Amino acid sequence: MSGNRTLSLIGGLVFLCLAALALYRLLVGFPITIGGMHVGQTMSFFAFVAFAAIALILFRGSRAR
């Protein structure tokens, strides 16, 4: 059981870093181009919300009961 909690904690940290990166892009506004198409700020907002929610779920799952 301890192994699952450790993996949830690591996953939560990874998604928290991704959420921080999406928030940084929202605040700074540097351009991202993938396959010749510009990625808008709206997609960064949705990515931030999704990554933060997944990190929260994983952190809550890693708590000791």
Rank of each mutant, 00 (worst) to 15 (best):
M1L: 04
M1C: 02
S2P: 01
S2I: 10
S2K: 13
G3H: 14
G3Q: 13
N4S: 11
R5Y: 07
R5S: 02
T6R: 07
L7F: 09
L7I: 01
L7M: 09
S8C: 15
I10D: 09
I10W: 12
G11C: 07
G12K: 13
G12R: 02
L13S: 12
V14F: 12
L16A: 10
L16T: 15
C17A: 15
L18D: 00
L18I: 08
A19I: 11
A19V: 11
A20R: 04
A20C: 05
A20G: 09
A20T: 06
L21G: 09
L21V: 12
A22V: 00
A22Y: 09
A22T: 02
L23D: 00
R25H: 05
R25M: 01
L26D: 04
L26V: 14
L27K: 12
L27P: 06
L27T: 07
L27R: 12
V28G: 04
G29V: 11
G29L: 08
P31E: 15
I32K: 02
I32P: 03
I32D: 00
T33S: 11
I34D: 01
I34K: 02
I34T: 10
G35F: 15
G36E: 10
M37I: 08
H38I: 05
H38F: 12
V39Y: 03
V39L: 15
G40T: 13
G40W: 07
G40M: 05
G40P: 12
Q41E: 13
Q41D: 08
Q41H: 09
M43N: 05
S44C: 05
S44I: 04
S44P: 01
S44D: 12
F45G: 04
F46W: 12
F46I: 05
F48C: 00
V49I: 15
V49N: 05
V49T: 15
V49Q: 11
A50C: 10
A50W: 11
F51R: 01
F51C: 10
A52M: 11
A52H: 06
A53K: 06
A53D: 13
I54V: 15
I54G: 00
I54Q: 01
I54S: 00
A55P: 08
F59A: 01
F59H: 03
R60I: 05
G61K: 15
G61H: 13
S62D: 07
S62Y: 11
S62I: 00
R63D: 08
R63H: 03
R63T: 03
R63K: 14
R63P: 05
A64Q: 13
R65A: 06
R65V: 10
R65F: 07
R65Y: 07
